[in-house]
Every structure is written in C-alpha cells, then in structure tokens.
Simulated scan of single mutants.
Amino acid sequence: MLPTVILPGYLESADVYLPLQQALTALGTPTTTVPLCKRDWLPTLGGRSMVPILRQLDRTINEALTNNQATQINLIGHSAGGWISRIYLGEIPYTIHGDVTESAKLWDARSKIATLITLGTPHISGERWTRKNLDFVNDNYPGAMYSDLEYICVAGKSIYGEKKRGQWLAYSSYQQTCGIGNTWGDGITPIEAAHLAGATNITIEGVKHSPRTAGIWYGSPEVRSQWIEYLK
C-alpha cells in the first residue's frame, strides 16, 4: 500500500492518533501523524490562518514520500483536519489572511495525494470563527471537486441533538454547524456536514467524534475496518 499521513483534528495532539497509526502500519501502509501538539493550534484560534498547520502537513507529507520512495500518499483528516486538507490539495493560493504570499506553495498538492479520507469533518459551518476559512474551501473547491482524487467522507451516528441532559452539547454543535440542532451526528459533527457531494459518503452507527471520548470513535478497530479498504 501507499504510505499514509494523518492530520489531527482541531486542538488535538498527534499522540492520541498513535493507536490508529500503529494499526494502519501493521496492515501494510506505513503511517505517520503530523506531529502537532495543542500549542501548535494556538496561532489559528478565532478563525485565523491555517498556514502554521499547512506548513507541518506539507513537511510531513514530503518526508513520507521521501522515506518510502513513493510518489503519492493516502491522506486522512480527522475533524478540521479534513477541510484543512482540502486547502492543501487545491491550486488557489491560500493568502486570504495576508500572512503568506503565493510563493509559499503550501497548496496545489493534489498530485501527491491518491485518496483523501475525512473522519467526522465539518465540511460546512455557520460558526462565525470558521466561516472565513470554510467559505474559502467551499467557494473554491465545492464537493468532491477533483475527479482524479478519491474522496471518502465518513460520518458517525451516535447522538441525536436535543435540548436535554446528555444531548445539549450535540444539539448546540449541530445547530452552529448546519443550522439544525435536532439531527443525528457523532456528538460534534452532524451527518450532513460530514459528507460531500460527489464523494463516497459513509455513515457508521455508534461512532463518537473524538479519540478522547469514552466509547468507539472513527479509529476504533470495529470502525476503521469499514473505511480502510479505501486506502490505496
């Protein structure tokens, strides 16, 4: 198999993805996680630029290609890591925050990626602090835009959002993301936001959003078996 790179979700550290990384490597796809820690996300707070994350993503992917003498990788983006990956793939310069020029070349990397797998990614959002970045993604790269790239979008169905104990967080998160609180999702991302038009869209029962949450998440053994078949 091709090597694989995992891009963590927002404010997540690479260490929580180690079990998934090790499991995928054991299956024959040498896997690396972008070596992020929580402080690496601090410059991006409040809807600011994702350039610091793109720099580390680009470095990790180039190292994976070199170390494995490969020309392409599989890219897995968890949560926000999925839509940040779509910025990386696209050819339009991500200069909307004024912190880099077109010479940065932290995008237009589609030729390096064989498959993009997103896990619980909010591909849409009504949150004011994410709109600038996500509007850039969806205005320029709507849906599964590139026909030469395979998109696999995985959603979890574990918590129905309601205004009552145990479901209030899900309700609030779903409402901020897609405008509807009374819907199904993984506790953070509603199903409809985790899918992309034109992609291979998968919904898995019982899956929760975070690797830190009690129960099963996207990287749990009984769940990952339903999407690893798409790795090239």
Rank of each mutant, 00 (worst) to 15 (best):
L57V: 05
G120W: 06
Q176A: 13
S125A: 10
V137R: 04
S13I: 08
E162D: 12
I216Q: 06
A64R: 06
L119G: 02
P30M: 04
K105P: 07
V100C: 07
V5M: 12
P30W: 06
W83L: 02
A14K: 08
I124L: 12
G77D: 00
L11V: 10
A64T: 03
I228P: 08
A64G: 02
S49H: 01
H78E: 00
T31A: 03
G46C: 03
T25P: 10
D99A: 13
G77F: 02
Y160S: 12
H97Q: 13
L134E: 14
M145L: 12
A144C: 14
T33M: 11
G187Q: 09
Y94F: 02
G198L: 08
S172M: 13
T60Q: 03
Q175P: 02
C178Q: 07
S220N: 09
Y88S: 01
H209P: 05
G28M: 09
G161H: 03
D40A: 06
S125G: 10
W217K: 03
L20W: 08
Q176P: 08
L36S: 01
N133V: 04
Y151V: 11
E127Q: 14
E229S: 15
M1E: 05
Y160A: 10
G156F: 02
E150N: 14
V137Q: 03
C37Q: 15
L7H: 01
K112M: 06
W168G: 05
N138G: 05
C178F: 03
L18G: 04
L27T: 07
S13V: 05
T183R: 03
A14W: 13
T60D: 05
N62C: 12
G90Y: 06
H195L: 15
I87A: 03
Y10H: 00
D108K: 06
T32S: 11
L36R: 00
Q22E: 15
V51L: 06
S111E: 14
R165M: 15
A194T: 08
S103L: 11
Q167F: 10
R39Y: 15
K132Y: 11
I6C: 14
Y17R: 12
I180D: 04
G187P: 10
L24G: 05
Y146C: 09
K157L: 02
Y151H: 12
K132G: 15
T25D: 12
S225W: 07
L2T: 05
D15Q: 09
S225V: 11
K164A: 13
G206W: 04
L27G: 15
P35Y: 09
K208M: 14
Y17M: 11
R224G: 03
Q22C: 12
A114N: 13
Q21M: 15
Q56M: 14
K163R: 15
E12T: 08
G219Y: 01
A194V: 05
G98I: 07
I117Y: 09
P30A: 02
L2W: 06
V223Q: 00
T121Q: 02
G161Y: 01
V154W: 07
T115H: 13
A193N: 06
T33L: 09
T130E: 09
P211K: 09
S173G: 02
T44E: 07
E91S: 13
R110W: 07
E63F: 13
L18A: 13
I159A: 07
A109R: 02
G219F: 01
N68C: 01
G126L: 06
I96N: 14
F136N: 00
Y151R: 04
Q72C: 14
I73Q: 04
D108Q: 08
E63H: 15
C37M: 12
A23C: 07
A170C: 08
I76W: 00
T31S: 11
